[in-house]
């Protein structure tokens, strides 16, 4: 089992990358992925080299206001980062992200009230884009807002199972106090409707994707050994 979590470090979160790495290592993660919207502005990324026993990967979260900007941003970031994620804040943008084969993960934002659409799910299957579930509302929200979100997640989950999409779970941590251990995350995911084996696979997915991306692919299905 090699669990990996997607995080945001200072200045987009309140903790430095090395503090997040220390906290994650203590909780039992084998790796963390720091996905800031501005990956060049991360505070002291070199300090991470001193934290031993955990694999830290710098990915990027794509930030764009329209589908065209998204495509150009993805093509400029792809050669530099082994992992690209996008937070789908509207249905149109979520679909655009699913239609881009260079994208690794499309995160369903909790604020997005609609579940994953059929067209997006089909596109995600075709382009091998994983669907990410941000389960931070289970911690941050209470009451009717959380029950609405739970319903949306269960619908998205049904569709993801139907199209056999790769799924990932994250808690969207911006500080060490937001981080939860892999077993706690799996327990929260079960509350949200995940099966235990699905939750374990979802926690391992980001690490697997990065390993695949770090190999030298010449084209689809062709690898330089």
């Amino acid at each position: 089992m090699s669990f990996c979590e997607i995080l945001k470090a200072f200045p987009e979160g309140s903790d430095s990358a090395s503090r997040l790495a220390l906290a994650a290592k203590r909780m039992g993660y084998q790796g963390i992925m720091i996905c800031n919207e501005a990956p060049d502005r991360i505070f002291r990324p070199k300090a991470i080299g001193h934290v031993k026993g955990i694999n830290v990967i710098f990915g990027a979260e794509v930030c764009a206001s329209n589908p065209r900007a998204l495509r150009s941003r993805v093509s400029s970031l792809r050669p530099r980062f082994p992992f690209l994620a996008f937070s789908g804040y509207s249905e149109e943008m979520a679909r655009a992200a699913c239609e881009d084969p260079n994208m690794d993960l499309m995160l369903l934002r909790p604020e997005l009230r609609r579940p994953l659409g059929i067209v997006s799910a089909k596109a995600a299957k075709q382009n091998q884009v994983a669907i990410g579930f941000d389960i931070s509302p289970l911690v941050r929200w209470r009451g009717s807002a959380r029950s609405r979100w739970l319903e949306t997640v269960s619908r998205s989950l049904e569709l993801s199972r139907k199209f056999d999409l790769a799924m990932a779970i994250t808690i969207g941590a911006r500080s060490h106090l937001d981080l939860r251990s892999p077993r706690d995350l799996a327990a929260l995911a079960e509350v949200a409707g995940f099966e235990p084996n699905e939750a374990d696979a979802a926690l391992e997915l980001p690490g697997k994707l990065v390993k695949l991306n770090q190999r030298n692919w010449l084209g689809p299905g062709v690898e330089l050994l």
Binding site: F10, E12, G13, S14, S16, R19, A47, H50, S175
Partner: peptide, 13 residues
């Protein structure tokens, strides 16, 4: 962004 009072750093930073 994270609603915390304090920033978390390490001595390495």
């Amino acid at each position: 962004g994270s609603d915390t009072m304090y920033m978390g750093l390490t001595s390495f930073d």
